[in-house]
């Protein structure tokens, strides 16, 4: 054992891995191993993706997707966190509602898109609605789970100093549940993106990355556009996931230190 390799080696190896895949794909295309008609050259895709970054129409699509995504996520969090607290602090209500939730939860959220298409005449509202429904679950479940994890001793300590229920909720339960809520929001963000793009694929007509991809299907070099746009969808996913993870580490380093230390 020589210990952990330094960070630079991680970066270097990772970059080499990406470059390696790029070269393999490029060579396979150029040597005819993969027909460039069936699967475009890696260099073509990358240059197309670069061109898209300066394409006003595509950027408008990205903005539309991100707008619905952010709005849906925000509403979901605003609804799910209070609901989670309500259910988490009122065990009777939770016991009564649990079976209803258990029946609703397994419904695949994308199945609601056709229904939402009928119910909402505005495409943007429709997107936001299905995103809210899908993003609601992970936030709710993580909130309830986090509340169960609150140290009873911490609550009793505050109680023994004469603080009331609300004070305990505000000073102990909320801060110690916050890291769990954050995890829920990070998961919900990924699901929200899936729903946004699914809705755009099915709805058509409106703007969005999914719409862009589906509409590119008509042009002769469709695949180049499709893969390039998909790459950007991946970049959005990586960036959002990275930002959420970073925010979690920043805000809740005390939580990480505690759980890692306990291991």
């Amino acid at each position: 054992m020589t210990g952990r390799p330094p960070l630079s080696s991680r970066l270097l190896c990772g970059a080499a891995g990406v470059a390696g895949l790029f070269c393999v794909m490029e060579l396979a295309g150029r040597s005819g191993l993969i027909d460039p008609i069936v699967f475009p050259l890696a260099s073509t895709v990358v240059s197309r993706a670069a061109a898209l970054a300066a394409d006003g129409e595509f950027l408008a699509d990205v903005a539309s997707t991100l707008g619905a995504w952010a709005a849906g996520l925000l509403i979901a969090v605003l609804v799910a966190v209070p609901t989670g607290f309500l259910l988490g602090t009122l065990p009777r209500v939770e016991a009564a509602l649990r079976p209803v939730l258990e029946f609703l939860r397994p419904i695949p959220s994308v199945a609601l898109i056709p229904l939402a298409l009928l119910l909402f005449s505005d495409r943007f509202d429709m997107k936001v609605a299905v995103i809210v429904y899908a993003a609601w679950w992970p936030v709710l479940i993580n909130t309830m789970y986090g509340l169960k994890d609150v140290d009873p001793l911490a609550k009793e300590t505050l109680r023994s100093f004469g603080f009331g229920r609300m004070a305990v909720l505000w000073r102990v339960s909320l801060p110690s549940t916050a890291p769990f809520i954050a995890t829920g929001v990070r998961l919900a963000a990924a699901i929200a993106l899936i729903l946004a793009i699914s809705a755009e694929l099915l709805a058509g007509g409106a703007s969005g990355i999914g719409t862009f991809i589906i509409e590119a299907g008509g042009s002769p070099d469709a695949l180049e556009y499709i893969i390039a746009a998909t790459l950007w969808a991946g970049v959005i996913g990586v960036v959002s996931n990275g930002l959420f993870t970073l925010a979690e580490r920043r805000l809740f380093h005390w939580h990480l230190a505690r759980t890692e230390g306990a291991r």
């Binding site: 994308v110 946004a196 793009i197 699914s198 589906i214 499709i226 746009a229 998909t230 959005i236």
Partner: peptide, 11 residues
């Protein structure tokens, strides 16, 4: 992992 899978459907 970050690519939303539905985006790959057209591909």
């Amino acid at each position: 992992r970050a690519i939303p899978p539905p985006a790959l459907l057209p591909f």
